[in-house]
Design a binder for these strands. Structure first.
Lengths: 146, 146
DNA sequence: TCTCAATTTGTAATGATTACAAACCAATCA
DNA sequence: TGATTGGTTTGTAATCATTACAAATTGAGA
């Protein structure tokens, strides 16, 4: 577990500190999973994460990936995105933003949007703790390609 | 199948016409499922629909409910709402609106909202065919009750 | 080194959804 | 009327992501 390059260690230390700061004990698996999630712009699924890390962590179990992501979400440093009916994706960006899913290439794009309630009364007195905004359609690439 | 009251028949005929207008052959099951979906404000799941109609249609199969909802969605007279990770809900309102889910009582509330893109460039040239806006939190009732 | 609690792991169970093939029904035609 | 045909419904079995659970492992502190 100490065969990493110096640069890797430095990076991992940063992530480790970050996890600790958020009340998460920074195990090897957790650090690697968080690093991968942070570095990936594709909002990976559990399966994708698991397959990507299998080489580095040969003993990795899919249950660990599930457990770890649950911890991240509980502590507020990751969020689940259920933009597909059949698979949950994960993201380290926890600020409010929208996700566009291209139904041709399945790519997911982030975008910023403002949401303003039209009829204020409906949700008056409601406590809103989480928001999800999903757009679906065909991305520029795919519609130009055809 | 002809033991309904006159009022029921009139209503069913309306629904039947509506289905026909949308290219769907109005079978008994389809009419009943659409009626239930339309009359329900709770965005029911397949299970809820199935259980609610079991008495009226003793031979009903859950597969039929799945098939029927798929037809409705394909023809654009219903939409799927994946506000929960683990169950899909259905709605006959196909105009753009948001859904609030109370995580205490699991109730779902509709609301109207305006979405304006902050950074127009990101989605420029993208074709948007569907939108979903979900809020999560605690509804007025539940937060007052505690 | 020993101990304890937390973490990780593998296997088995769960449960929603889908695949599939047989049964059924409704309309059309001989 | 009876046969045919295509679409609809039904039940069962398969799929697959996720969860439950218990054993194995790890790591920090005494």
């Amino acid at each position: 577990m100490s065969t990493n390059k110096a640069g890797d260690d430095m990076h991992s230390n940063h992530v480790g500190e970050f996890l600790k700061d958020n009340g998460i004990k920074p195990s090897y698996q957790r650090i690697k999973i968080y690093e991968y999630l942070m570095g990936s712009m594709t909002h990976p699924t559990v399966d994708t994460i698991y397959n990507a890390l299998c080489d580095q962590i040969p003993t990795l179990s899919k249950t660990t990936v599930y457990n770890t992501l649950k911890v991240f979400i509980d502590k507020g440093i990751a969020m689940a995105i259920t933009i597909d009916d059949n698979e949950v994706r994960y993201d380290t960006r926890t600020d409010v933003h929208g996700h566009f899913k291209c139904e041709k290439c399945n790519e997911i794009y982030d975008f910023k949007a403002n949401i303003e309630l039209e009829d204020e009364d409906v949700l008056r007195g409601f406590e809103i703790t989480k928001q999800q905004l999903f757009f679906y359609g065909v991305c520029k690439h795919c519609s130009e390609a055809k």
